[in-house]
Design a protein around this nucleic acid. Structure first.
Length: 295
DNA sequence: TACCAGGAGAGCG
DNA sequence: CGCTCTCATGGT
């Protein structure tokens, strides 16, 4: 819908837990400031605020449409329809009850890929720090409202491809530096076209991403799910591994590939969404008492 | 202080 | 082949 440019817009939404969504390990650039969430989407500074019945967005520069933000936040997704596809077992019921409103974002492919290359063997706080340094040093400055600190876009692959491994190591990414540098060169050089992934099957797209050094099944699945629009991608990290083992395979040690096939059939067409609920639920509830699957 | 966290590559059976 | 071990890194 085209309207006259405005720098503020309210979205009426049901079941959107902004805080849970922005802190659930999908995206690493959102900061909570005075009850608002401040971040950068593409090249725009954005400030979001949750309120009963929806959320309000504010940009620095007035914009004539908000499709880019609705796309990023996936506000048009009907959560009820997604949740209705989840299996009716006890673990899922508990996870949905605890995290209702949690959403999947649709992020920029390169930013997501680069961020998750940096995520390897790191916890969320640490990933945020590395990404922050990287953006401050090599990202384009974005306009911020008067009185707000400077913010930067995520650096492009082209920009990072010109750096040295030492430059990247100086951003505290350690042994991931050569991985990111190679990925930046591969993407900017055109050997891998991220925009082409959507034409592939999930299996094919995963294989394409895994050709990159430093990108294994878990990172590939994160990129496919959080940025690629592959709802069946199912990242298996230690949290999800623990959850699945504990809840569905208490006596065995299934391999990640086995778990992925199980999740593909057990959790339905939105397996990735289900995974996000389990992941977030496990993070909130630490180890906790055993909940057993009762189909 | 120990501990945590993906992937690659080596080494082993 | 397929599994296990080691490495590299910085924040709690």
């Amino acid at each position: 819908m085209q309207t006259s440019p405005e720098n503020c817009r309210t979205f009426e939404l049901r079941d959107y837990d902004l805080a849970a969504t922005l802190t659930s390990g999908q995206a690493f650039r959102w900061n909570q400031i005075d009850g608002h969430w401040v971040g950068v989407v593409g090249t725009r500074w954005v400030r979001l605020r949750q309120h009963p019945g929806g959320l309000t967005a504010q940009t620095t520069i007035p914009v004539s449409h908000w499709d880019w933000l609705e796309h990023y936040l996936q506000t048009r997704v009907n959560l009820d329809e997604v949740l209705a596809t989840f299996p009716a077992d006890e673990p899922m019921r508990a996870a949905v009850a605890a995290c209702r409103g949690l959403r999947l974002l649709r992020q920029d492919l390169w930013e997501c890929l680069a961020s998750f290359i940096l995520s390897s063997t790191k916890q969320i706080v640490q990933i945020r720090q590395i990404v922050t340094i990287l953006c401050e040093r090599y990202g384009e400055r974005v306009e911020t409202p008067a009185g707000h600190p400077p913010m930067f876009a995520f650096p492009t692959a082209q920009r990072l491809a010109l750096l040295s491994e030492a430059d990247l190591r100086a951003c505290k990414m350690g042994f991931r530096a050569p991985y990111l540098l190679t990925a930046a060169k591969t993407i900017s050089g055109g050997s891998l076209d991220l925009d082409n992934l959507s034409r592939l099957t999930t299996v094919q797209a995963r294989a394409e991403l895994m050709k990159l050094h430093g990108v294994g099944a878990k990172i590939a699945d994160c990129v496919l799910l959080f940025a690629g629009g592959f709802p069946d991608a199912f990242p298996v990290d230690v949290w999800v591994m623990r959850a699945l083992r504990q809840l569905y395979f208490p006596r065995r040690r299934p391999k990640p590939d086995r778990l992925r096939r199980f999740s593909g059939s057990h959790f339905g067409p939105h397996a990735g969404y289900a995974q996000q609920y389990l992941f977030h639920y496990m993070r909130i509830h630490k180890p906790g008492p055993a909940i057993v699957a009762t189909p």
